[in-house]
């Protein structure tokens, strides 16, 4: 029966040639092979997000008068609703963490170099999309923390010269964070971003499959992709799934109080950890630097670092070869240390 189905599919979709390719696909084995698994974990966590997101969507009702109530209903009345919400939230945080670890490993392994420039660029866009997922999803429960975090976060957009005011209205759907903002963020979170992420992930995986893993030519040893690497991937996915379950049971994601625009912001309000370094930098910058608002300097710095990171594979080969590796390592380690220090500072302040 299986042979019949296989030949049926092969006649139409050249299944055998695909299986042949998969049989011969290998993964280089070296001291940094462990970082190859981080990409797989990102993919797994993205799948968890899609699955739990769809389940949450069955009960979630967007609107200033219904979002909070529906999330409360999910966590208190729906069977395993609490689990789905906690898994969705914890998995989102782990996803951004693993995307960052994955990108840092690519950076330090110099795996972005030719011919893998577009893998890096698509990865950068994916990081941006994941952060946009985080920012838009944070508002959806319409609780106090989410409301004020979104207000502060979107205020930054309004600081941009010339287009700031227009962009702020576009993002918020008006002057203030209201139900209109919630609808926009919901649309972004469940339609636009998933479509963009799925397309880019497909492209990213296609690039990796066509070009193979980096450092393949330098490695002395290789392992078969199927089943050896896939089974290892699966093992790690199971461990990550278990970690998420433990986090969801022991630290269920709190809902807090419903958003109230007339209330003052709760003391010590902070964004999620992956926005904390940027937030802290904006907080400590002076009000004016050379007649230009400090916040604009901050936004300029983020944009410059983002652009430099995105175009890394194109400007990096132009650096003088002598001392280039050392300079790149210092740049990466310094940037990482600065971001970690700012995050810690933001967390403690």
């Amino acid at each position: 029966m299986i042979d019949l189905l296989r030949s049926w599919l092969d006649e139409r979709y050249q299944l055998n040639s695909f299986l042949e390719w998969a049989r011969h696909k290998t993964v280089p084995v070296h001291r940094w092979t462990v970082f190859y698994y981080t990409g797989g974990v990102c993919l797994f966590l993205f799948l968890v997000q899609i699955a739990t997101g769809i389940l949450l969507l069955m009960y979630y009702r967007v609107g200033a008068e219904s979002s909070y109530e529906s999330v409360r209903f999910i966590t208190s009345q729906v069977e395993y609703g609490w689990l789905m919400r906690s898994v969705h939230s914890w998995s989102a945080n782990l996803l951004i963490l693993f995307v960052l670890v994955h990108m840092l490993s690519i950076y330090f392994m110099r795996a972005y170099r030719s011919p893998r420039e577009l893998s890096w660029v698509s990865g950068c866009f994916l990081l941006g999309i994941m952060m946009a997922f985080g920012f838009s999803g944070y508002l959806l429960p319409w609780n106090e923390l989410a409301y004020f975090a979104t207000k502060v976060g979107t205020d930054i957009v309004g600081q941009l010269p010339i287009v700031g005011g227009w962009l702020l209205k576009l993002v918020r759907g008006g002057e203030e964070v209201t139900g209109a903002t919630l609808s926009r963020f919901f649309g972004l979170h469940v339609a636009i971003l998933p479509a963009a992420a799925s397309g880019l992930i497909g492209l990213h995986l296609l690039f990796v499959q066509v070009q193979g893993m980096s450092h393949g030519e330098d490695a002395k040893k290789h392992m078969p992709f199927f089943p050896n690497f896939v089974l290892r991937d699966l093992t790690l996915w199971l461990v990550v799934l278990n970690v998420i379950c433990v986090l969801a049971v022991f630290f269920p994601w709190e809902l807090g109080l419903k958003a109230d625009a007339l209330k003052s912001a709760p003391a010590g309000i902070k964004p999620e950890w992956y926005f904390l370094s940027q937030y802290q930098l904006l907080k400590v910058l002076p009000a004016k630097i050379l007649f230009i608002p400090g916040e604009l300097w901050g936004i300029g710095m983020f944009s410059a670092v983002g652009a430099l990171a995105l175009l890394l594979p194109f400007w990096e080969p132009r650096l003088p070869k002598s001392g280039r590796e050392r300079l790149l390592t210092i740049l990466g380690a310094g940037g990482l240390a600065a971001a970690a220090a700012l995050t810690l500072w933001g967390h403690l302040s």
């Binding site: 050896n228 290892r232 699966l234 093992t235 199971l238 461990v239 278990n242 379950c245 049971v249």
Partner: peptide, 22 residues
């Protein structure tokens, strides 16, 4: 959670043995 952890641990061990065998 304890039961799920047990099952996952069992699966991880089984996968490890399979990989070692391979």
């Amino acid at each position: 959670l304890g039961l799920a952890t047990l099952i996952i641990t069992f699966m991880v061990v089984a996968l490890y043995l399979k990989i070692r065998d391979l």
